[in-house]
Nucleic acid binder design. Sequence first.
DNA 1: GTAGAATTCAAACGAACGTTTGAATGAGTA
DNA 2: TACTCATTCAAACGTTCGTTTGAATTCTAC
Lengths: 232, 232
Amino acid sequence: MSSPSARSGPETRGRILDAAEALFVEHGLDATSMRMITTEAGVNLAAVNYHFGSKDSLIHEVFRRRLGELNQSRLAALDRAEQRARANGTQIKPSQVLEAFFTPSLEMATDTVHGGRTFMQLLGRTYTEPNAFVRKFLAEEYAQTLQRFLQALYDSLPGVPREEILWRFHFMMGATSYAIAGTDALQLFAGRFDDEDPAHMLPRLMSFLLGGLRAPLPDFVTGAESVARNAE
Amino acid sequence: MSSPSARSGPETRGRILDAAEALFVEHGLDATSMRMITTEAGVNLAAVNYHFGSKDSLIHEVFRRRLGELNQSRLAALDRAEQRARANGTQIKPSQVLEAFFTPSLEMATDTVHGGRTFMQLLGRTYTEPNAFVRKFLAEEYAQTLQRFLQALYDSLPGVPREEILWRFHFMMGATSYAIAGTDALQLFAGRFDDEDPAHMLPRLMSFLLGGLRAPLPDFVTGAESVARNAE
DNA sequence: GTAGAATTCAAACGAACGTTTGAATGAGTA
DNA sequence: TACTCATTCAAACGTTCGTTTGAATTCTAC
């Protein structure tokens, strides 16, 4: 579509952000030029530097405006789960921690109206972004949230070595990023899926992730004896 | 290190490939310029175009030389596993299929001597590469291998819908790419891991992947009844 | 040792990049 | 109407990009 009509207005900033978001997904950060962005947004070339200062600052803002919202949803969900557990006098379950973390991602990825899906695809791709500047502010943006969730996972799996929980959380983020970045990430699976309904991805992914978390620890950790069966 | 001495010789091609591989991992494909590559390799700027024709062709060759070898290892491992099963008159197990696919990746990722580790990090990052040209030849390079392995997985899990197997294989590739691309992919986990011994990653990852594959199917698939417990 | 092919080299090419400039435009206030 | 301030605009800036050129050099074979 892309309607480069609509003579400006004060929504120039937002139009630039939306256009940049979409183009970043399609071509990557580097391969998306200022001219592509301003043409798609229907604004003057100089508008980006006027409103954001630089291309790097624009990139930062594209991520910031959505990531703040996403991580707040995650933390709120974790708060609710912990409160519920405390009210019942029970320990929070690993599955509840994972759901609090990954459900908001998938919900945002399902939202095709407000551009959430576009952004989550972008975010999924950006987890492996080599650009040092991008990696830095993404790490900062995630730091507190990740800290909270790892602690919650540790608490919910008292018998399992933290090192192993960390590794599995790492694997889970990989599976999720990949799943969200698109079934056609590599075109390897293009055309093979019959059911790409995003609403079905959440239960599919959660089931897979929980299975991975519950799996017996490798032999060299346990001394050939499985002890990590206390997950739910 | 990087020794830009050694007055050329016929190994100019190889030096360029190695330098490009390392720089692609560090900065990404776009952000790595011809001048960076030729400087690192200690060759003249024009050497890339002379030996490879263009930057795109160089990129293609960087992937081709290692990917062929990797997929041949995978197929050979699958052949051996199927032969063994046929000799015993048994069906091949899902775990054996997965091991045949993912073990060669991890082995290559562990090889720090011949640059295998560098390449696998690059490959992990490239699964989400937006560059259409790169995606195209990677898909071609993978097509046959993926076909064989998916069929083997289908055969080893006769009771499970193919759609679900496909999704889980997708998730598994995500977890693996992410794991290999580096524990510091996002610097999110930087400094948190005590044990980054690559030799320990394989059992950790295989355990996680098998757990995910074995997990009960989501309710909307089974009608709230689990049927996917036949994995090993 | 000399012809001829293969390779390396310094220099330059046009194109595209992110950014800056200074004038034109518009709305809000006195 | 005149002034102000924010925004938009066309044009140009200097830099870096991938690639090409043609001469210099090295290697190979007779």
